[in-house]
Design a protein around this nucleic acid. Structure first.
Lengths: 229, 229
DNA sequence: TACTTGATGTGGTTGGACCACACGCCTAGA
DNA sequence: TCTAGGCGTGTGGTCCAACCACATCAAGTA
């Protein structure tokens, strides 16, 4: 057992037992090292790992905002991990898109019309109407789809959706340049978004799921997915 | 930008550009530190992060098996990340099970009868017939379900299935103790497994998906999911 | 030829030192 | 008394030098 893994185990046990909860602060690196009888280096390596997994956030200085505190950002961990494995060409972009269609379709079929996340999605849609800039439009589009995923009320699916999006963020951005007529595409996307929300409002989960699948696959087909990694 | 993140960027760029591929070896920590003009500590912190994400594997000693090499184990990263966030009570076990049902049902509906992974699943089923020990049976059960997920041919779904399983491994193990009659349950599980494979062989993806969903949800219902974390 | 032994190179770990930063007390001035 | 500035303290961030354990390979020896 390597030393930093011992520290990882200790922290995980503190989390599991509830002695360390969301928002809680870890002991200072130096005192934790002394407490566990390991070097500060090993403590720091463990903290780095947990930081990369979205479990901790290290802040310098003094006061309430400083120190190493417990956060909860599953998306960060899954996202960077997926991105790295895409970089090694072991997770094809096609599979990521396919998984996104699967998750988001399910979320749409499960979304409750009265969900707050859905109201947020509707708000975002209005903002997109009065949005001429391509970049801003895409940013709102991302938030719309994430809100759609949240509406299903499944934290794991929400986190996975966010991480999938993050993993192919750059890739999707480059795809936009391939579109023959952005204005026309934007008009179509707006209409499809409204159709999805309408289906959910009608309690027609099956139709909503189908619309979402067509929406996503249609976009990638038009922008030219399939050129490999 | 913290120093170790600079190292992370460098390594990721090497992966993206293909100058560092699967099975390739990273420069030695000391020489990489000198090359990037950072301390060995920072290099090690970056390596730790990538190791936790299943991208690298560090090995001591000398020879071909030693050094820091590039691997591809997306399951490790997603699994430990999910497990940690379950520990912080921010990812309910119920959501994990629900997501597993979603992914595995989809995989079953997509699985091709001629897939090698499906042949592997059938082999595992035979082994389970001549398996009396509860623990060994469950181990084979895990491998069966992972093989089922692989049969869909989507690397992302396979990785996510594996990580979901890993995240609730301990939890599922404890559940087994709740079963009123293990022998009867084992008989039922065997029959359901065969039903799933039969549906796939019949090219009846819809039935296969439904059987998988019933199979998983039935097990957790019988073992008593819902007692919280 | 077969075995032993040492050199070499790898990651693993440690302790110490210094830096930048942010807060909060504490003092000097108005 | 009240205010403004400075300095002490504690935090993480970084670096260095050294040592250890381990695995391999090559040279030397029986």
């Amino acid at each position: 057992m390597r030393t930093h893994q011992l520290v990882l185990q200790w922290i995980e046990s503190q989390l599991s037992s509830g002695q360390l909860a969301l928002g809680g602060r870890l002991p200072a690196e130096r005192s934790l090292a002394e407490q566990l009888q390991v070097s500060r280096t090993s403590v720091r390596e463990a903290i780095r790992v947990l930081e990369a997994m979205g479990v901790l956030r290290a802040g310098v200085g003094s006061g309430p905002e400083a120190g190493t505190v417990v956060i909860a950002d599953p998306t960060a961990a899954l996202g960077s991990a997926l991105r790295l494995h895409v970089a090694t060409s072991h997770l094809p972009v096609r599979d990521i898109v396919e998984t996104r269609v699967l998750l988001e379709s399910w979320a749409a079929s499960r979304a409750r019309p009265e969900s707050p996340a859905l109201a947020e999605a509707a708000r975002l849609l209005e903002q997109m109407d009065s949005c001429a800039e391509t970049e801003a439009f895409l940013a709102l589009d991302v938030r719309f789809h994430l809100a759609l995923a949240d509406a299903a009320g499944n934290a794991v699916v929400s986190a996975m959706m966010g991480s999938l999006r993050e993993a192919i963020q750059d890739y999707a951005g480059r795809l936009t340049g391939n579109l023959p007529d952005w204005e026309a595409t934007a008009v179509r996307l707006r209409a499809e978004h409204r159709g999805i929300l309408a289906a959910i409002s009608d309690h027609d989960g099956g139709r909503a799921a189908q619309l979402v699948a067509d929406h996503i696959e249609g976009y990638y087909a038009e922008a030219g997915l399939g050129s490999g990694s």
